[in-house]
């Protein structure tokens, strides 16, 4: 959408409206939450692995997304699959933002906020449920994770479940690596995966 060009006579009417609109949008998110109309709250935080989109519902954290996934595209998916009542509401995600800060500083090993796993169904969800069993600072192969599930030979499906994990970092799919010991692909990129595994290895050794 191109910015509307106001006629010169009216240009002064737009003075300061950006700040006013921002203030109103924040108040709208609060009022919407009070009226039960805020179905998906989100914010974007900076992190050592790039900007992260955090989105939550009443049930809990529903999505963590890396920049390379395209935050606008992820919000559009949330609008289609959860509810179009999506608003930026940073305060509603303070808890997870704080826990992530602690994690990136090497001061947190597990996340203990409620998770909303509605974006992962069936076998994918079963796989995600097992990932926290891989301890901080450790890794497991796709085959080893498959062995924990009801379909121990579904190694490829474990790879898919990790690649489509709606809650990366918090549900630690970065700890799943190839059987030959190489790190394998990652939602946030291979560099991010290496960085996270190095962080956990050094913090776990300290």
């Amino acid at each position: 959408m191109t910015e509307l060009k106001l006629p010169d006579e009216l240009a002064s009417l737009a003075d300061g409206e950006e700040a006013a609109t921002e203030r109103l949008a924040a108040a709208l998110a609060r009022a919407a939450a009070e009226d039960g109309l805020l179905d998906v709250a989100y914010r974007v935080v900076d992190s050592p692995v790039g900007p992260l989109l955090l989105a939550g519902t009443d049930a809990g954290l529903v999505r963590v997304a890396f920049a390379r996934e395209g935050h606008d595209a992820v919000l559009q998916q949330l609008s289609a699959s959860v509810s179009p009542r999506v608003l930026r509401a940073p305060a509603r995600l303070d808890g997870i933002a704080r826990e992530l800060d602690e994690y990136f500083a090497g001061r947190r090993r597990t996340f203990d906020l409620p998770l909303d796993l509605r974006l992962a169904g069936g076998f994918r969800r079963e796989v995600l449920a097992h990932l926290p069993e891989i301890g901080y600072g450790h890794t497991a192969s796709y085959a080893a994770v498959a062995a924990l599930t009801s379909s121990p030979r579904a190694v490829r499906a474990v790879g898919t479940a990790c690649a489509r994990n709606p809650l990366p970092l918090v549900v630690p799919c970065h700890r799943v690596v190839r059987s030959d010991g190489s790190q394998g692909a990652y939602l946030g990129g291979t560099e991010a995966k290496a960085w996270l595994l190095a962080l956990e290895a050094s913090a776990a050794a300290a």
């Binding site: 009417l13 950006e18 609109t21 109103l24 949008a25 559009q76 179009p84 999506v86 608003l87």
Partner: peptide, 22 residues
């Protein structure tokens, strides 16, 4: 077409609607 996230409407049209209200 799927509905865009409501936030898109706020950020795209919030200022124009404010002018109308004023």
């Amino acid at each position: 077409a799927p509905l865009p996230p409501f936030e898109v409407l706020v950020s795209r049209h919030g200022a124009a609607v404010l002018r109308v209200c004023r």
